[in-house]
């Protein structure tokens, strides 16, 4: 099988891959930075509340120690929340460090579910990972794989209504692994068709394939079949 960087139209394909990868990176980092901003805003208001209490004491009001304790606990809680988001952002950014690496598919799916959670919330859709309690070591491109999974989630968003559900799972296959994203059937728009073509290209780059099958009324499963290992660097 030829790589994406070979044959007719190679240059356009490579440009498309680069543009899409950058777009994906931008969407995820923007979303995570928004989450960080929300946490910072809350901590900022809590600090302001402490200032207000102190200003009150300067005017002779007694300091409400219980309230100070509650504020301190809330600050600690939000600092922890912020740390977790930063950890996710950091892990996501480092997933682009190397074109091929060894990782656990289960951990990757957990990470994708968390980083795409806010995108789902904004769509009014629930996103859940229903993952088997087993690790599945794989050698592939973690960044492209996250891009493919989020692409499937975005396709489901296109046909979603409020309170719809999208689930992610994975399983072992003879040749490697299968990731299944089940959710609303995509809306069939030009953008969705274009996303489907791109995902097929991305999966080819990952040495795998993609298939779609109906999973019920207005619901479909998008399945990503991945080899256990890709040795050449993905494009």
């Amino acid at each position: 099988m030829s790589t994406l960087g070979e044959g007719p139209g190679a240059e356009q394909r490579m440009r498309l891959m680069r543009e899409k990868a950058l777009g994906f990176f931008a969407v995820i980092t923007a979303s995570l930075s928004h989450e960080i901003n929300n946490v910072v805003a809350i901590i900022g208001e809590l600090s302001g509340l402490l200032d207000d209490l102190l200003a009150g004491t300067e005017k002779g009001r007694p300091l409400d120690q219980e309230k100070v304790k509650t504020i301190s606990e809330r600050i600690a809680k939000n600092v922890k929340k912020g740390e977790q988001i930063i950890k996710r952002l950091n892990r996501f950014a480092h997933s682009a460090d190397e074109p091929v690496k060894d990782f656990d598919l289960r951990e990757l799916l957990e990470q994708v579910t968390t980083i795409a959670q806010r995108l789902a919330t904004l769509k009014g859709v629930s996103l859940e990972a229903e993952l088997p309690e087993v690790s599945l070591p794989i050698r592939s491109n973690p960044f492209s794989m996250q891009q493919a999974i989020v692409g499937c989630i975005e396709l489901a968003f296109s046909g979603s209504r409020r309170n719809d559900k999208i689930t992610l799972t994975f399983g072992k296959e003879d040749a490697g692994a299968k990731i299944t994203v089940t959710g609303p059937t995509h809306d069939g728009s030009e953008a969705s068709q274009s996303m489907l073509s791109f995902l097929a290209l991305l999966m080819r780059d990952l040495g795998g394939t993609m298939e779609a099958s109906p999973a019920g009324n207005d619901t479909q499963s998008l399945m990503l079949h991945l080899p256990k290992s890709i040795e050449r660097p993905a494009n």
Binding site: N38, A41, I42, E45, L46, G48, L49, D52, R74, N78
Partner: peptide, 14 residues
């Protein structure tokens, strides 16, 4: 953001 509006409203009320 429930927590955000809760704190900000408290500060505005004060």
């Amino acid at each position: 953001e429930e927590e955000f509006i809760l704190i900000l409203s408290e500060r505005m009320k004060s």
